[in-house]
Amino acid sequence: MKKRSKKQSGGKGFWGEVAKEFKKNKGAIIGLIIFGIIIFAAIAAMFILDYKTQITKLNLSEALRPVSSKHIFGTDQFGRDIFLRILYGAHYSLLIGVCAVVISTLIGSILGILAGYFGGITETLIMRLMDIISPIPSVLLAICIASAFGQSLYSLMLAVGVISVPSFARVARAGVMTVRDQEYIEAAKSQGASEFQIIVEHVIPNSLPPILVQATMRVASAIISASSLSFLGLGVPAPQPEWGGMLSEGRNFLGTNTNMTLFPGIAIMITVLCINLIGDGVRDAMDPRLKR
């Protein structure tokens, strides 16, 4: 309750408070720092490394080398340096994770806000649609979508994005419903504000925190889902060094070249761990009631 009154009295207070709470969380700060480094490395790699010569060029004389000072993570079956490929591949995972979540946040929140604000038949229609999508096992749904739109980075984003639309719709709807009947909405209406204005000025800012928390968490699971699809052969097409795809290639060399599966997996884990830490921090900071 205290939280809401702060939010209404002026956006800054609430966000300042959140930032202050977030800074207290050691895990979240560590996560944020490492994640920052990962993003920096991912961007730098795209500029510094040459895709043709350093990432995809075959060099069979150097194939399947173990970890050494020359190739710190070793090389794969085509003699490509695994470390450089992981570095270069970082941006795929990050891009897919973020874009997929942007897609699901946008679609899900819009649906949820419309459902929550207008209620009645709109709400019933939207929420029933969500009820229909959500029991379909998410990996299978993603596989359907990915195969319907062909094997590409974009269809992977779409597939991973669509599977979390229902949960965003639910969170957004719940958020809207708590503010829908507040008096200040009535007040805005009586002053002649249009529905659109009310939604943009009052409803969205007030239902934003839970959506943001959900979004941060979902980036993490989106990266894992995407790498799973790539692992199954439905993701980013082959020569591109996507982490899940690299893992999939490494499967054929499990007995002899552990490094081919070990390192891409660790890369995924560290990235996702950082995002989860940040997500936890954001959640605890936004909702002190959840913090224990």
Partner: peptide, 9 residues
């Protein structure tokens, strides 16, 4: 944070 197919491997 760990992809479970990787953990399986």
């Amino acid at each position: 944070s760990m992809p479970n197919f990787w953990f399986g491997l």
